[in-house]
Write a protein that binds this DNA or RNA. Structure first.
Lengths: 153, 153
DNA sequence: TATTGTTATACTCTATAACTATA
DNA sequence: TATAGTTATAGAGTATAACAATA
């Protein structure tokens, strides 16, 4: 009995996360903090509310993550130019370099993994994985919609 | 610029975990606890040391997880027949049923996702994902070996 | 009145180190 | 001496709820 395709996919994600965590080790970075840095790199300077939405966590949680990243010199808080309630969070120069390098390594790993697939299978794998991701996204969205989180069922 | 294959794989894992977490909601189960139940179902009654190795976490952590699962009626501790230091952890009847059902749903989801792939691509996807998983496993093992965790580099 | 961020509180997962009881 | 499990302690990630300042 061979493992299910789904189990293979989960194994890949697990291995990747282990590898990431090992790479951070000693830098003060963690998966949650890197996720925030990654969101910042893509969105540019953002309010904490925006980061909470992008990362899918509570605003309170963002406060803690930004506190830690500010202490380690990865991000900077500055006053919002037009809304005195809000702050803008942005990457520092060194963090921008770190993220650029991380993105490069990410792309390199992607190329390495694709190279492990037989050339005649590559197009089918791309198509298949994309189809699975889209289908699963639909399933999860439907499940979430039919069960409105809290309150009125 | 289309997303990298690796990003698709991580997205799939993330969606799956979200869906799992939503399914547990209100049952007192969490991903870590389900992982332990899953290990128990496959290994049969086990000592906590064995569970620590299977789950890849510290023995201390297993104590906490087993405490919680015992309180919620999913597992039972019993004395080890030949080693009075150790305890055997085993699934209760209801937990066995829960896990059987969960495994069935897991298999159903796997079938659903495979059905989302074009029939002529399925064999290639199976081969490709297996190749990627094996290759990544090798990469991570090599990285771990060249950096002996703690102490002597 | 609604929004932004924070303080307060709490729970889960995780780890290491020290201790107890066995082997 | 080494092993199985626990207590003690600590830190990260997460959440909700209450509160301040500002829109």
């Amino acid at each position: 009995m061979q493992p299910l395709l789904l189990d293979r996919l989960l194994q890949i994600a697990d291995l990747f996360q282990k590898d990431m965590a090992r790479a951070f080790d000693g830098t003060g970075l963690t998966p949650a903090r890197v996720h925030l840095l990654w969101a910042l790199q893509h969105a540019g300077p953002s309010t904490q509310q925006a980061l909470a939405r992008l990362c899918g966590v509570s605003p309170r949680n963002i406060t803690g993550l930004v506190d830690a990243l500010e202490a380690s010199g990865h991000v900077r808080r500055s006053p919002h130019p037009s809304d005195r309630r809000a702050v803008l969070v942005e990457l520092t120069g060194t963090a921008t370099e770190t993220m650029t390098q991380m993105q490069q390594e990410h792309a390199d790993l992607d190329a390495t993994l694709i190279a492990a697939v037989a050339p005649e299978d590559r197009a089918a794998v791309e198509r298949g994985i994309t189809a699975i991701a889209l289908h699963l996204e639909t399933l999860v969205a439907d499940a979430a919609a039919s069960e409105p989180a809290k309150g009125a069922p």
